[in-house]
Design a protein around this nucleic acid. Structure first.
Length: 906
RNA sequence: GGGCGGUUAGCUCAGCUGGUAGAGCGUCUCGUUUACACCGAGUAGGUCGGGGGUUCGAGUCCCUCACCGCCCA
């Protein structure tokens, strides 16, 4: 006997074990050797990460697709793994060292530090794997990969070297986004622009050889030490005569030109702007246009670096001001700012302080203000690689769902900047570049090959120095769709599963990952990495705010799984995953779907209690009982709806279709209507009904399995234990066959059962509204019943009595006096209730209904009376309206009649 | 400043190619019936953000305004 409720915690573990033993998720199962492959690569979570709601949604949807396709017979590979998260991981381990008061990474050295990171990874990395398993993710865990694995590292080497040799990777001295906290460069995408309240300081610079001054406004006064020009707009009358003149930079004494450049905005500040090409991206461009010097005044920690700085000191005359400035050496940029302002003010050169809101770049990991800083870094020529990636989507080879994300993808790729891929970290793929004594660079896959190349170059053996830096984590992630399949080796998996089918991810990752996978896949595999990119929503809290630790509004998916079960969480996420909308998650909703799980469980329990066992060779088309035929046709409809929903990535539609069928059709009506048969005498009808119910429960397990894998697999096992042994291929639900979306329909059964349902619903409603006590058994009179209605009423009389609480079902040519009347499927039924019913309430009820119908009649009449409508609307629409009018009029007539009768009698 | 999305029942949201406004939760009323109170029956609740247009017909298409959110400068 089944328990009264489904207990997820006790079942989930056991079912996970069952899948494991059956190797249900293993790709390349021998029994599917001839099957079409289906492949999804997981967006690799950070090795430092733990499951948050975004992961839960992302992986639920992937799992729905994978389980669905697996049941449709495909050879599914859901490729799992993690990335090494360069900065995040290094940060975790460094923090750990500090906490334990152990030597820091520089003290322990690179090799020892990396050993330490691997140690950390083995112990506490990858907690998310177990969490994904708790969610029920049907990944092929035997194929788990890690971006720092030997194989994937080989792919990285191969890619780097080949891109370098193709001229698509190069070393360049440019401004980068420098994170002074981590002391590494980061890419544009890892920078967050934040609005900050600050000031515009207006400084006066003296024009050489005149008594004029020119005022520049800046949000970053400390950078003035590195100024190499002042720019004005070429059309700005105020400054036209100054262009070409020289300004003496205050405090420093550097002579710098006034240049005309459109970058300067005449409307902003004073219209003149200081140019610091080594510390500002826009200034860098201005400097390039005018051949300006680049003077870097910061060190890697963003402290002033001016004493002994040749570029800074070059050409400066000695002065008291300069000496004072040099005392700022080593000061942090923000402290230096205050001092510079104070010095300018002391000299009467500070014109104005104007409050100003402006955007300031911050490192997304460190939160630190990013410093544009001039360094040598490695760059990928993203622009070139972007072209095939753009073309593939334009030509429809890869399709975004929903489609509008294409625009985001295009906009970014069309305006793409060189991708800075070097990071000044230790944890990651060390760049395979070696430098000779004269800094000639040799990019090769190994030290040996580099040495050989150097020998060829120099004509002798020389000492080589390897580049210290590592690659951006996203560099290795970009290779994920093929590196995980064994590339650069030509493995059978690569041949079978590449290109993969669908990539499922959030929109925030389109730039970071989707675009880069497209570039790399197209370049190295010469084929798109996936034909569809499904972009899902962001999960927000119930008020619509982005979940974040700092806001404290994070809902922990694991806690929801503990409380309501993994199935309830999954179903909630799928049911709310409407395209193009964010998900505002509330636990109430999860609770509701937990209740749904319990409902299905109890339906199965009821079936068990009533001996509804599967029967060998059950054939829906051979079923004779109207009720069963009706249920089977409704089930077929549900199969079609769920199938279509998943196929179209309309997960909410699919989930809701299954929900409606299970609760509102199967539980509310099928089981209720079957009760008398099940509790009645044994016979063919009872046997057929039992088998049919068992069949539908099996079917429900199937269509719900992608959404609620644990519950359904458990039910499948319970139902499998009774009755005939399941065939080998159907032992494990996860591997069983998805139901054929057969065209099973039974219109005659729908007419009969539909009539019954409508009539019961009408009577219940009328009883309730006229205040008939719930316990009262009242008679029903079918008025002028047609032949078919008579037959139905006879065969369903007991059921009518039971569901509508009737004492008797009779027939008459006219409705009795003082009766409550309802209309079901065009025929009148009366409840003679003199004395029982509140006649005024009944009059009100009828009047209200009449109003409603009359309004409808008016609406349709005006439509049909409209010559334009009649002339222009399609015939079937007109016909539909005619039918609607006739129905409404007939119904209205019957209600008027009933009202009249009530008044006469009352 | 540019782009994208949103505004539909008290709340959270569906509503695909224009043709009778839906669901879940919550509210209220009732509950005899051995699958289920994590339940059952019933009920109320909407001028689909405002304005204009196209159309026989607009929640749906177009324009415009307002407010909210996100992305990119």
């Amino acid at each position: 006997m089944m328990d009264k409720t489904f207990d997820p915690t006790s079942v989930e573990d056991r079912i996970a074990g069952l899948w494991d033993r059956a190797q249900a998720f293993k790709a390349g199962r021998p029994d599917r050797a001839g099957a079409e492959p289906y492949c999804i690569v997981i967006p690799p979570p950070n090795v430092t990460g733990s499951l948050h709601m975004g992961h839960a949604l992302n992986n639920t949807l992937q799992d729905v697709l994978c389980r669905f396709e697996r049941m449709r017979g495909r050879d599914v590979l859901w490729q799992p793994g993690m990335d090494h998260a360069g900065i995040a991981t290094q940060m975790v381990v460094e923090r750990q060292l500090a906490e334990r008061q152990q030597p820091d990474r520089r003290a322990m050295g690179r090799e020892a530090f990396l050993a330490r990171v691997w140690e950390w990874k083995a112990e506490s990395g990858g907690a998310i794997k177990g969490q994904l398993q708790r969610l029920g993710a049907s990944c092929d865990w035997s194929r788990e990969r890690f971006t720092m694995d030997e194989g994937l590292s080989r792919a990285v080497l191969e890619v780097f070297v080949r891109l370098y040799k193709d001229g698509l990777i190069y070393r360049d001295k440019r401004l980068v986004n420098w994170d002074p906290k981590f002391q590494t460069a980061i890419s544009d995408l890892e920078v967050e622009q934040k609005e900050v309240k600050g000031n515009l300081w207006h400084f006066r610079y003296a024009v050489e050889g005149s008594d004029r001054t020119i005022t520049v406004a800046t949000t970053r006064p400390e950078t003035m030490l590195g100024d190499t020009a002042v720019a004005v707009h070429p059309d700005d009358e105020r400054y036209r005569d100054l262009v070409g003149k020289t300004v003496v930079l205050p405090l420093v004494g550097r002579r710098i030109p006034i240049v005309a450049d459109e970058y300067s905005d005449p409307e902003k500040g004073s219209g003149a702007v200081k140019i610091t090409p080594a510390h500002d991206f826009n200034d860098f461009e201005v400097g390039r246009r005018h051949g300006l010097r680049l003077i870097n005044v910061f060190d890697a920690e963003a402290k002033l670096d001016i004493a002994g700085n040749e570029a800074f000191l070059d050409g400066l005359p000695a002065s008291g001001d300069l000496d004072e400035v040099l005392t700022l050496h080593g000061l942090d940029r923000f402290a230096a700012r205050k001092r510079v302002i104070a010095m300018m003010e002391a000299r009467g050169l500070l014109d104005l302080i104007e409050p100003n809101v402006h955007t300031v770049p911050h490192g997304d990991r460190s939160g630190e203000v990013i410093e544009p800083w001039l360094t040598d870094q490695w760059y990928v020529d993203a622009k070139t690689l972007a072209q095939p990636a753009l073309a593939a989507v334009r030509e429809g080879k890869t399709r975004f769902v929903p489609r509008n994300w294409e625009k985001t993808y295009f906009d970014w790729l069309e305006n793409i900047e060189p991708w800075c891929v070097s990071r000044q970290l230790w944890w990651g793929h060390q760049i395979p570049a070696w430098y000779g004594p004269d800094n000639t660079v040799f990019v090769e896959k190994s030290a040996e090959e580099a040495a050989a190349a150097a020998r060829a170059h120099y004509g002798r053996d020389v000492e080589l120095r390897r580049d210290e830096d590592v690659l951006d984590t996203w560099f290795s992630s970009a290779l994920w769709p093929f590196s995980t399949l064994g590339w650069p080796d030509r493995t059978p998996e690569l041949a079978r599963y590449y290109p993969t089918d669908v990539l499922v991810t959030g929109f925030d990752i389109i730039f970071f990952w989707v675009a880069r996978m497209m570039m790399m896949g197209l370049h190295f595999m010469e084929e798109i990495p996936f034909h569809t990119v499904y972009i899902h929503a962001l999960v927000r809290d119930e008020k619509g705010a982005k979940m974040s630790k700092s806001k404290g509004n994070v809902i922990d998916p694991l806690q929801l799984i503990d409380t309501y079960g993994a199935d309830a969480l999954r179903f909630t996420l799928a049911a709310m995953a409407a395209q193009g909308r964010d998900i505002k998650l509330s636990t109430q909703r999860v609770e509701g779907y937990r209740n749904f799980a319990t409902k299905l469980w109890n339906a199965a329990r009821f079936a068990e209690m009533n001996g509804c066992e599967r029967s060998e060779g059950f054939d829906p088309s051979a079923v004779g009982e109207k009720l069963n035929r009706w249920a089977l046709s409704e089930y077929a409809r549900a199969v079609r709806e769920v199938t279509a929903g998943i196929e179209a990535y309309r997960f909410n539609d699919a989930a809701n279709a299954a929900y409606r069928f299970v609760w509102n059709v199967f539980c509310d009506w099928y089981l209720e209507l079957a009760k008398p048969i099940l509790m009645g005498e044994d016979g063919p009808a009872k046997a057929e009904t039992r088998a049919s119910i068992a069949h539908v429960i099996d079917g429900v397990c199937k269509i719900l399995h992608p959404f609620m894998p644990f519950l359904t697999e458990e039910l499948w096992a319970i139902k499998g234990a009774a009755g005939p042994l399941r065939p080998e291929a159907e032992r494990v639900l996860a591997l069983s066959a998805w139901p054929e979306a057969a065209d099973f329909s039974a219109p005659e059964a729908e007419e009969e059962i539909g009539w019954l349902i409508d009539l019961v619903t009408e009577i219940r409603s009328a009883r309730s509204e006229t205040n008939v006590p719930a316990g009262a058994q009242i008679p029903l009179v079918l008025v002028s019943a047609s032949g078919p209605t008579r037959e139905r009423a006879l065969s369903w009389g007991d059921m009518l009595k039971r569901l509508a609480r009737l004492s008797d079902v009779a027939f008459a040519d006219a409705a009795p006096a003082q009766s409550v009347q309802v209309v079901a499927r065009g025929e009148v039924a009366a409840l003679p209730l003199a004395g029982v019913v509140d006649l005024d309430a009944e009059k009100q009820r009828l009047a209200k209904e009449l109003d409603r119908i009359a309004a409808d009649v008016r609406k349709v009449e005006s439509k049909l009376g409209n010559a334009d409508f009649m002339a222009r609307a399609p015939e079937e629409v007109v016909e539909e309206q005619r039918e609607r009018l006739a129905d409404s009029q007939a119904r209205a007539a019957k209600i008027r009649d009933a009202l009249a009768r009530l008044s006469k009698a009352g």
